[in-house]
C-alpha cells in the first residue's frame, strides 16, 4: 500500500512536471512568435512606392475630367485632358492651401476659397495665388496612371 501510494504520488508529480514544462515551453513559442511577426516586412501602402504615386486606372477619370488623389505629402489633382494624356498637380492652392477643384467647362483648376484659378499648365490665371501650382510628371502605362512626386 505504502509503495503504491508512493508510486501514485510520484506519477502525479511527474505529470505535473510535464504540464509545467509544457507551460514553460509556451514561452519559447511566444518568443519565436514575436520574432516571426516582427520579421514580416510591412507592406508599403498600396498606391505608393518610393517617389511614385499610383493613381489607379485611367478609366476612373472621364476625358476632360479630374480627380483628387490622397498622398501623405498632400492631395494630388490628376486631370485627364485627352485619351491617354494626364496631368498632375499639387491640389493645394499656393495662396492659403485650400484644396483645388477642376473646372470641367474651361479646363482650369479653381480654388473654392478665394476664386483663384490656374490654367492646365499650373500658371496663375486669376486671383490671389502668388505662385504657379507645382506640377508633377504623370505617365500612363497599361492604362494605369503613375505620378512621379519628386
Amino acid at each position: 500500500m505504502e509503495t503504491e501510494k508512493e508510486v501514485a504520488r510520484t506519477s502525479r508529480r511527474s505529470f505535473l512536471d510535464v504540464l509545467g514544462a509544457a507551460f514553460l515551453s509556451l514561452w519559447g513559442v511566444a518568443f519565436l512568435g514575436v520574432i516571426y511577426a516582427y520579421l514580416g516586412a510591412p507592406r508599403r501602402r498600396e498606391n505608393e512606392s518610393g517617389g511614385t504615386l499610383r493613381a489607379g486606372s485611367l478609366d476612373r477619370i472621364p476625358i476632360g475630367d479630374a480627380i483628387v488623389v490622397q498622398h501623405e505629402s498632400g492631395p494630388v489633382l490628376v486631370a485627364r485632358i485627352a485619351e491617354v494624356e494626364v496631368l498632375a498637380f499639387s491640389a493645394l492652392c499656393t495662396h492659403v492651401k485650400c484644396v483645388l477643384r477642376w473646372n470641367r467647362e474651361n479646363q482650369t483648376i479653381v480654388c473654392p476659397c478665394h476664386g483663384g484659378a490656374f490654367d492646365a499648365s499650373g500658371n496663375v490665371l486669376y486671383g490671389p495665388p502668388p505662385r504657379p501650382l507645382p506640377k508633377y510628371s504623370a505617365e500612363v502605362r497599361d492604362a494605369q496612371i503613375f505620378i512621379r512626386l519628386t
Binding site: 498622398h71 501623405e72 498632400g74 492631395p75 492659403v96 492651401k97 484644396v99 476659397c113 478665394h114
Partner: peptide, 13 residues
C-alpha cells in the same frame, strides 16, 4: 491628414 485638408478648405471657404 489629407481629409483634414478638405475640412480646412471648407472652413476657409
Amino acid at each position: 491628414r489629407s481629409r483634414l485638408e478638405d475640412a480646412r478648405t471648407y472652413l476657409t471657404e
